Amino acid sequence: MSCAPFHRGVREELADAGGAEVLPLRLQALRGRAYGADPDAYWAAGTGLVWEDPARPLPDDEPLQGDL
């Protein structure tokens, strides 16, 4: 399966977002569309967002195993 729809969709979402602070809410809405009735959002099924929140830094050792 081609990953072109994913790359196109991510590029469009990031361009429309305008800033990182809105990404969690946009991703939540996008995933709702992907698992709902929006056939144009199929490319986003299974997406996730990982970032380091400046107000709550990731643990230094094994960050993906820590209390996030």
Rank of each mutant, 00 (worst) to 15 (best):
M1R: 15
S2E: 13
C3V: 12
C3T: 13
A4L: 15
A4I: 14
P5Q: 03
F6L: 13
F6Y: 11
R8S: 08
G9Q: 05
G9R: 01
V10E: 08
V10D: 05
V10H: 09
R11F: 08
R11D: 14
E12M: 06
E13L: 14
E13Y: 06
L14G: 01
L14F: 04
A15G: 10
A15H: 14
A15R: 15
A17N: 07
A17G: 07
A17S: 12
G18Q: 04
G19D: 05
G19T: 01
A20V: 02
L23P: 02
L23T: 06
L23I: 11
P24N: 01
P24M: 01
P24E: 03
L25S: 05
R26K: 08
R26E: 00
R26D: 00
R26S: 00
R26A: 02
Q28W: 08
A29F: 00
L30D: 00
G32Y: 00
G32L: 02
R33Q: 04
R33M: 01
A34Y: 09
Y35E: 10
Y35R: 09
Y35C: 04
G36E: 06
D38E: 13
D38I: 05
P39H: 09
D40T: 15
D40F: 10
D40G: 14
A41L: 13
A41D: 15
A41F: 12
Y42K: 15
A44E: 03
A45M: 15
G46L: 01
G46H: 03
T47P: 02
T47F: 11
G48Y: 13
G48M: 14
G48C: 13
G48P: 07
L49V: 09
V50C: 12
V50T: 10
V50Y: 11
V50A: 14
W51E: 08
E52K: 11
E52P: 07
E52C: 14
D53V: 07
D53S: 13
D53Y: 12
P54G: 05
P54H: 07
P54V: 05
R56D: 07
P57L: 07
P59D: 14
P59Y: 09
D60Y: 15
D60T: 15
D60H: 15
D61L: 14
D61W: 10
E62A: 14
E62M: 11
E62Y: 09
P63V: 09
P63R: 04
L64T: 12
Q65D: 14
Q65P: 00
Q65G: 12
G66N: 08
G66I: 02
G66F: 03
G66H: 04
D67L: 11
L68D: 15
